[in-house]
Design a protein around this nucleic acid. Sequence first.
DNA 1: TAGATTGTTAATCGATTAACAATC
DNA 2: TAGATTGTTAATCGATTAACAATC
Lengths: 214, 214
Amino acid sequence: MEKEISQAVIRRMPRYYRYLGELLDDGVERISSNDLSARMRVTASQIRQDLNNFGGFGQQGYGYNVKYLYDEIGNILGINQRHNMIVVGAGNLGQALANYVNFEKRGFVIIGLFDVNPNLKKSSVRGIKVRMMNELESFVKEQRVDIAALTMPKEHAKRIANILVDLGIHAIWNFAHLDLELPEHVVVENVHLSESLMQLSYNIANQKKLTDKK
Amino acid sequence: MEKEISQAVIRRMPRYYRYLGELLDDGVERISSNDLSARMRVTASQIRQDLNNFGGFGQQGYGYNVKYLYDEIGNILGINQRHNMIVVGAGNLGQALANYVNFEKRGFVIIGLFDVNPNLKKSSVRGIKVRMMNELESFVKEQRVDIAALTMPKEHAKRIANILVDLGIHAIWNFAHLDLELPEHVVVENVHLSESLMQLSYNIANQKKLTDKK
DNA sequence: TAGATTGTTAATCGATTAACAATC
DNA sequence: TAGATTGTTAATCGATTAACAATC
């Protein structure tokens, strides 16, 4: 039986990936958990523990090979493996996602953009034309869609999420401010901007306490 | 000495707030931790523990008054207290934030929108005109700015964050894909979309394991 | 080989859950 | 009053950190 890896660990992996990418760009060939810990401001122990969930990527007395570790983490995260993505809701947020070219570099390719607004009918974003919702079904049936990003108002999100799941999509990147109740096999990742803003707001009001702690 | 409240708790508060808001809209007057736990799919114990970090808002044998608890959590999070916000980077993401009216309902008012792109000089979003970066300094000196949202490419984020902090801003909502190194008194809340997407990607690849667990 | 640094076990810390006495 | 449900203490669980033997 494979051991279950906690989401706390998974959440840290992209950050490791980012730092390793920077080291790679800087031409650094190898790094010890200790040096990396100093840069990232986490404990060396945590780095070694986290990585060892997935295998032994280092070498005693040497450290970690940056390029190798970078690639391995990329594999773990499923980067470089192509993911076809559609964005449902072509408002500013949906367009922002469609415009963000770095996703594509990592294999997350936006292949469709959908909206209810007929004014957007003839428009397109970075060459991706905006389609109307009634084209959704045939589109999803014709192309493989790995991820659907939901960037429409929350009033529609529940209904549309169900439609998408019925069409066979089982990964949802949810920007709508509600909790989707979907079958177990569907993977959901939430981005709740307003909750993030409220957390910031709390920390502003309690900033003194925060800094006192340190 | 005030007890320190963990970020794990703070992160859950906006979600309670959201559910209580919905109950309020539905005309529900009171709710027990048990009923709320069933709706939110967390333990009743956690709800009671979380709330009791801030005080005793309930009543034995009765539960919690929805309206009262909603307001109290709002106070805790600093909602309804006005926060003036500027958005630096008026691309799609910055415009999306500027267009999102719900922030304003919660007291987060976007009072300025800045960009380097001279093409945006005459444009405005929801009545908020886009200003050029050279107006930033005088603007911040004239108005109280509580929060700066950074929605520019990461290449500029570090420099601009430092400028903002020097101008006296001490809360940053960072959408740029880097870790800002700022003085201790500055509160930073990160929204790293690409990391969120990678976490989703990991969970897609490991979906079977996830559902097996349950 | 000696020194460095990993992989991994053990210890600690913190967060979550369970239990129940207090009390409305 | 009896029943319900909180506030809070105690128990458990999981995550982080420390320590060190293994080994390059």
